[in-house]
Amino acid sequence: MKAVLKMASSNGFENHHGCPSNLRSELDKDLFAVGSSADKEAFKRIYLEMGPKLKAYLVKTGQSQSEADEILQETLIKVWRKASLFNPAKSSANTWIYSVAKNARIDRIRKETRPKPDPEDPSFVPDPPETGEDSVNRIQDERLIRAAMQVLSSDQAQIIKMSFFEDKSHAEISAELDLPLGTVKSRIRLAFGKIRNEVEKLS
């Protein structure tokens, strides 16, 4: 048995009232408002901003128009219901909503629930308590990531795009590009290594 201090920081609160200091975009503020005060106007703004982007993503990954609409609706329901679990210290609202959509899509396609870690599980090991400085480092800044992704070679960028936008498995990518599976995997590892390095340099 190991005792771990489960910090309030795992919910992104730096102070005990009002807005946490790490709401960095309008979308972050809106999602936080949906979670903390069931703000319907904020939810509508999220829909207007993210709906068309998620729809484009879902169609691009091979869903039909009607499937994409259904998954989008499921996503919106989850965003509304689970907004209080959004942790601005860990991810941006954009990433959080994208993950919700991705998971909704995967659960539908796989026709089974993919196993996921559950923070309520007694065996779950929570994040270690952080100092303010660490917590800044932990936020995954998409702006920096997008800039960092520019340094990828065209070979690496292509594989990352096929993974994210066509949701192809490594084996499918290997067949389509006529590359050994090991090469596909090592390119992915190199690509993320490069992105991470570049993000560190830029931040």
Partner: peptide, 28 residues
């Protein structure tokens, strides 16, 4: 992932990279 905060953070990084890519799509 349930017992490894480091891998959860890496996973979050990968989701963030995917979300960053979302920006280049033409909204539908």
């Amino acid at each position: 992932l349930a017992i490894c905060p480091k891998c959860r953070n890496q996973l979050e990084f990968i989701f963030a990279a995917g979300a960053a890519e979302l920006e280049v799509l033409e909204p539908d």
